[in-house]
Design a binder for these strands. Structure first.
Length: 892
RNA sequence: GGGCGGGUAGCUCAGGUGGCUAGAGCGACAGCCUUACAAGCUGUAGGUCACAGGUUCAAGUCCUGUCCCGCCUACCA
């Protein structure tokens, strides 16, 4: 007896097979190959990270694609790697350091970076081992890191190239500043969050007049940096003060009153305080009117010497309190009105960002964005779902210069050098030897690059760029990029732009943007919200395959997908079901081994159930393949689930049991064959279980694939070649009959053990013939029968239950056990339903327009449907009448 | 303010270009330890497809409007 446990234990299977795959190098892609290339670069996870639900979904889908294409015979490359993740990683390290009682600043740049590398070495294996637990078939020999030597070279090359094209430049400009991280940020890194704030109405007296301007602001502390008051040029209320001077309270300064059309007369008091150094709009106004840019904050968000001494050194928030208190005391405060508004926060650390003026390096992404739009319009890159295309265009159209320098330490230092003698700026791969002024003393820019700059080069930096490698020739542009839609702007569009900028080609042909996993409340799952499913715990409890299946099954086209625990549970049951089906087949193969070299050949005499299951398998192969081609993972999952469980197990294996009992093992061998092919189909979704079963089947002589195949990972993807609609129709009739009988037995509570007599009446000789041929052999597998009678016409036996399928009637005499009331209720319900359907069909057909205008096929279908319904209705009516006569109650 | 997605069974969701009697999983109910699986098997119940109009022979599906929910986006101090 095959020694397989009754319950599938994933833990005992999974580790073993991953090692086997790696040992045999199945995941390694050849740099050159006759085969067509298929490549995906992984969205590199943060080195410090642990696998969260988003990774699990993202990587499961990628692995599905890669495994599927590998089986289809492509030279598949799944490029793995990790991301140094800039500020994010630094912040985590800083928390660690704080726990140790030290800090980044205390350590100093050199020590800090050293410490980061050390930590990277310690943790980076962790995330990759988790990906392996998930079954990811990455080419680990090629594993990369966004801050490794190759990436550094790519980053410097790209930077210098874009600099020389004039796309990278330095500018002093207002940008978002994080006082906590002490660095500039791009707009994307700023998350606007609605907060409850106030409008502070403040009096600004006009010099040499009794006029007092009332000005509303949400940020009173910035008044210390005010350098003007602005009103609308056409505002009648303020004509007389334009050109005059206002006295800035608390500061003992005088500021001009200017007219600028930006001011909204309707809003607030119609008078605006202008702080060019601390507000983007005021900055613009300041430029137009050549106002002083008075910066009053230090880099870490405290008040500097530009403000009155009293406030120097206060934090932004304490300063606000102090300013309000002082205004109040000096009677400059009119009122405070509660006001809810959006305030920008740094998405990584949550600090309120400060618009600030600083010299930074920018990338002019406009020209590249334009090319990206054109590439998309030409179809060089395609977005799935399609709606993402519009989001992409919109972003590319409104895109602004990208500030790429960061005042941080963990990352690629800008390849920019300044001559210590003449301050000349040089962009170069390495420290320049000599300046044009003759000096040879240079210092490198202190800043590092935005982490997205290096990850933007990922699709080609991982392939060896800037060298002209075989990998680039073979795999670039890659086939698909798989990612959540939430990083379309951060990462995907940057890759497209930088791909065009550096390679002159888009980095991937297709972008598949899957949904984000949400909890029951529709909230995106994230660790910080505490509503997250832990993939590793889930894998422990349910097994990787169950989890992966659930993820694929949840992966509908919606922007948010939900993954209730019950769905994972369902995956586990499915795995167990497959396991047991395999167990049944393997156990029986021991008694009826497949003779060497025997193939179950198709013949005229082939039993119906074999033709049928092969046809259904072909159908399943076709549907699954199409689903994967269109990134409809949920459809692939559902198709396989339905086939395996409800067709193969529920029906075919039951037929097979009969055949085995009749000493006709072909049915078993076919079962093994169908299971083997189904394991191949299911492999991309459930790699471990399918490998285990596939290997077991191989040991038992089921080798329909070529002898060279030693693993399902490289077995050929099945081909649909056995579709047979005749067999499907015949089987459908049989199934209907069997289901009707089971339904009668169930509803009338006929004991399982009781055998029943079945009488079938059908005027259709073809149907009768089919039933005569097959019913006797199949029916006993599904229900206990004492005898079967099939006739063109026959009297309904007394005290019998009845089912009607079109013109076919089934009678089951139940003399002793029949409950006439129950039978009456049953038939009555069906009669009502039939009547309803008749009315509806009749109505459609009575409409002359329908008959005239609808396609012939549809009309014919409708007519046939009505015909069938009418017959059913009539039969049911007659039987009901008979029942009533013979004493059944009609209390409907 | 603008845009996008959604509202289908108690719950989570499918329903490519309009056309079988609107489906699945989970849950519910009833009955079964039937020799692969009780993590199973069999049967049953459960839906005005958010609402109101419209187009059409035909609408869950297309159009218009309304109401909810979610998200993205915008400089209203």
């Amino acid at each position: 007896m095959t020694n397989l446990p009754k319950i599938y234990a994933p833990q005992e299977i999974e580790g073993k097979w991953y090692q086997f795959w790696q040992k045999n190098d199945y995941f390694h892609a050849a740099a050159t190959s006759e085969k067509q290339a298929y490549a995906i670069v992984i969205p590199p996870p943060n080195i410090t990270g642990s696998l969260h639900i988003g990774h699990a979904l993202d990587n499961t889908l990628q692995d599905c694609l890669i495994r599927w294409r590998r089986m289809q015979g492509y030279n598949t490359l799944w490029m793995p790697g990790t991301d140094h993740a800039g500020i994010m990683t630094e912040l985590i390290m800083e928390r660690k350091l704080a726990d140790e009682g030290t800090s980044r600043i205390a350590l100093g740049r050199e020590k800090f970076v050293e410490r980061m590398w050390q930590w990277k070495e310690e943790t980076s294996d962790y995330i990759t081992s988790q990906l392996q637990q998930l079954g990811c078939s990455c080419d680990w020999e090629r594993e990369r890191f966004t801050y490794d030597e190759g990436s550094c070279k790519a980053v410097n090359t790209a930077f210098v190239k874009l600099y020389n094209q004039g796309l990278i430049y330095r500018d002093t400009y207002m940008a978002n500043w994080c006082p906590n991280c002490v660095t500039v940020l791009s707009n994307l890194e700023v998350e606007p969050i609605e907060v409850d704030g106030n409008f502070y109405h403040i009096r600004y007296p006009v010099k040499e007049s009794d006029v007092v301007l009332e000005i509303a602001t949400t940020r009173p502390e910035t008044m210390l940096g005010d350098t003007a008051v602005a009103v609308h040029p056409d505002d009648e209320r303020y004509q007389h003060v334009i050109g005059k001077t206002a006295r800035l309270p608390l500061c003992d300064r005088e500021i001009p009153i200017i007219a600028d059309a930006y001011v909204d007369r309707e809003f607030g008091t119609g008078a605006l305080k202008v702080t060019p150094a601390h507000d983007p709009n005021d900055y613009e106004i300041g430029l137009r009117h050549e106002l002083e840019q008075r910066t009053i904050f230090t880099q870490d968000g405290h008040i500097n010497e530009a403000a009155p001494e009293k406030y120097v050194g206060l934090s932004r928030w304490n300063c606000r309190k102090q300013v309000v208190e002082d205004l109040e005391n000096l009677d400059y405060l009119v009122k405070i009105v509660p006001h809810r508004h959006a305030v920008g926060h740094h998405d990584r650390c949550g600090t309120v960002v400060e618009p600030a003026i600083s010299p930074q390096w920018f990338m002019n992404v406009r020209p590249l964005a334009q090319r990206a739009i054109e590439a998309s319009q030409k179809g060089e890159v395609r977005f799935i779902p399609e709606r993402e295309t519009d989001r992409f265009y919109h972003w590319m159209e409104i895109i602004e210069p990208w500030p790429i320098s960061r005042q941080r330490w963990w990352g690629h230092r800008l390849p920019i050098w300044y001559c210590n003698a003449c301050d000349a700026v040089v962009a170069a791969m390495e420290t320049p030897q000599q300046c044009k002024c003759g000096a040879s003393d240079f210092r490198q820019d202190e800043d590092v690059l935005d982490t997205w700059f290096s990850s933007g080069l990922w699709p080609f930096s991982t392939m060896g760029w800037p060298e002209e490698t075989e990998e680039l020739k073979t795999f670039y542009p890659t086939s698909v990029l798989v990612s959540g839609w939430d990083i379309l702007f951060f990462w995907v569009s940057r890759m497209i732009m930088l791909g065009l900028g550096c390679m002159d080609k888009v980095p991937f042909q297709t972008v598949y943007l899957h949904g984000l996993v949400a909890d029951e409340k529709g909230q995106k799952m994230s660790k910080s919200k505490g509503n997250s499913i832990d993939p590793l715990e889930t894998i422990d409890t349910y097994g990787t395959d169950a989890f992966r299946f659930a993820l694929a099954n949840a992966s509908t086209p919606n922007p948010y997908v939900s993954l209730p625990e019950s769905q994972i549970e369902s995956g586990r049951r499915f795995a167990n079901k497959i396991w047991n089906a395999a167990r049944f087949i393997l156990m029986n193969l021991e008694k009826h081994p497949i003779p060497a070299g025997v193939k179950v050949v198709k013949t005229e005499q082939e039993p119906l159930e074999i033709t049928w299951i092969r046809s259904r398998l072909s159908h399943t192969i076709k549907t699954t393949t199409e689903a994967l081609e269109n990134f409809r993972f949920y459809e692939a999952a559902q198709t396989l689930y339905a086939f395996l469980w409800h067709e193969f197990c529920d029906w075919y294996l039951e037929f097979a049991k009969q055949r085995i009992a009749q000493e006709k093992p072909e049915a078993l061998w076919v079962a093994a064959d169908v299971l083997e092919q189904t394991m191949r189909l299911l492999h991309p979704l459930m790699p471990f279980l399918t490998e285990e079963i596939w290997q077991q089947l191989l040991l038992n002589g089921t080798g329909t694939t070529s002898q060279a195949d030693t693993s399902v990972t490289i077995a050929a993807w099945p081909e649909p070649k056995d579709e047979n609609s005749t067999a499907e129709t015949t089987m459908a009739t049989l199934m209907e009959v069997i289901e009707s009988i089971r339904s009668i037995r169930g509803e009338l509570n006929v004991p399982i053990g009781a055998s029943v007599e079945v009488h079938i009446q059908s005027p259709n000789s073809e149907v009768r013939e089919r039933l005569e041929t097959y019913l006797a052999q199949y029916l006993p597998a599904f229900t206990r029968v004492a005898g079967i009678t099939i006739a063109e016409s026959l009297q309904k036996p007394p005290a019998s239950a009845e089912a009607v399928i079109g013109e076919l009637a089934i009678y089951i005499p139940l003399a002793d056990v029949i409950d006439l009331d129950a039978e009456h209720a049953r038939l009555s319900k069906r009669h009502q339903q039939a009547t309803k359907d008749v009315v509806s069909a009749q109505k459609t057909l009575d409409n002359p327009n329908f008959v005239q205008r609808a396609p012939e096929k549809v009309v014919a279908q409708k007519k046939a449907q009505l015909q069938r319904l009418l017959i059913e209705q009539e039969k049911l009516a007659r039987s009901l009448a008979m029942l009533t006569e013979s004493g059944g109650e009609n209390d409907d």
